[in-house]
Amino acid sequence: MSVDTLIQQVVSGLATGGIYGSVALALVMIYQATEVVNYAQGEMAMFSTYLAWTLLNAGLPYWVAFVATLAIAFVGGLLLERILIRPVENAPVLTIVIVCIGLLVILNSVAGWVYSYIQKPFPSPFPAKPIQLGNIYFGAHDLGALGVTLVVLAGLYVFFRFTTLGLAMRAAAQNPVSSRLCGIRVGWMLAVGWGLAALVGAVAGMMVAPIVFLDPNMMSGILIYAFASATLGGFTSPGGAVLGGLIVGVIENLVGTYVSFIGTELKLTVALALILIVLVVRPSGLFGRVAVHRV
C-alpha cells in the first residue's frame, strides 16, 4: 500500500467524482426550481452522448462535436420542459415524477432502437499515454475529464452569480410569486434550467463514455452515484452536490482498492449505503438547508 497508489486512486476518484458531481448538480438545479427529482437526467445525458457519437462519426473534429452536442442538449432540455413538464407544472409531485420516469424509459428504448444495445467505444479527446509526475502515473483522460468538468462548473457559477439571467433563475426558483411581480417569466426560467441541466449532463456523458463505453444503460449506475452525491452534499446546495460528487468518487475508488471484499463488484453498494447513512444521520446533507415550513 504505497503513497503513490493512494494519490493515483484519489486523482482517479476525483475524475469520476467530477462526473458524478456534474450529474448531481443537474439533479439539484431542477430540484431546487421545482422540488422534483428528474429521474431521466441520466438517460438525457446518455442520449446526448449518442448524438455526440453520431456527430463524431460524421467526421466532425472532437471539440466541434463537443460544443454542438452541448448546444443540442441545451435546446433539447429546454424543449422537453416546455413540451412534457409544462402541461403538468401544477400537478402533484408524483405526476411529474412519473412523467420523468416515462421519459427515462422512452429515451432508453429509443437509444437502444436507433443505436442498438451493443457497447460502442467512445473517443477521449485526451492522449492515451499516461502523464507522469515524479513516480506517479496519471491517466490523461482522468485529468482532462476533471479539468473539463471544473471549467463547466466554473462557467455555471459565473453565470448564476454574475449575470442578470442567472439571478432571475435563482429568484424564480426561490420565490415564483415575487419573481412574477418583478416581471420574470418564471416558466421560461424553469425551461432554461432544464436546458442547462441537460447541458451539464451531456458534458458528464461525454467524459464518462470513454471509461464505461457507450451503451443505452451506461448512465444508470452513474445516476445512482449522482443521487448519493446530491444526498451527501444536500439536495438544496449546488456547491454541496459537486463536492458530494468528488467525495463519493474518491470514497468509491479507495474502498474498491483497499477493502478487498468490495472490489469492483460491490462498489455501487457503497453508494447506496452512503445514501442510507446520510439520510439517517443528516437528512439535509452536509451543506443543505433544513427545510422549515411555517404553519
Binding site: 442578470t164 439571478l167 432571475a168 435563482r170 429568484a171 426561490q174 420565490n175 410569486v177 415575487s178 419573481s179 411581480l181 418583478c182 416581471g183 420574470i184
Partner: peptide, 19 residues
C-alpha cells in the same frame, strides 16, 4: 413583502429593475 430571503439586498434591488 415578498422578499427573496436567500438573496442579498443588492440582488433583491437588481431584480426589481429586471422588467
Amino acid at each position: 413583502r415578498g422578499t427573496f430571503v436567500q438573496l442579498t439586498v443588492e440582488e433583491n434591488l437588481r431584480l426589481g429593475a429586471y422588467a
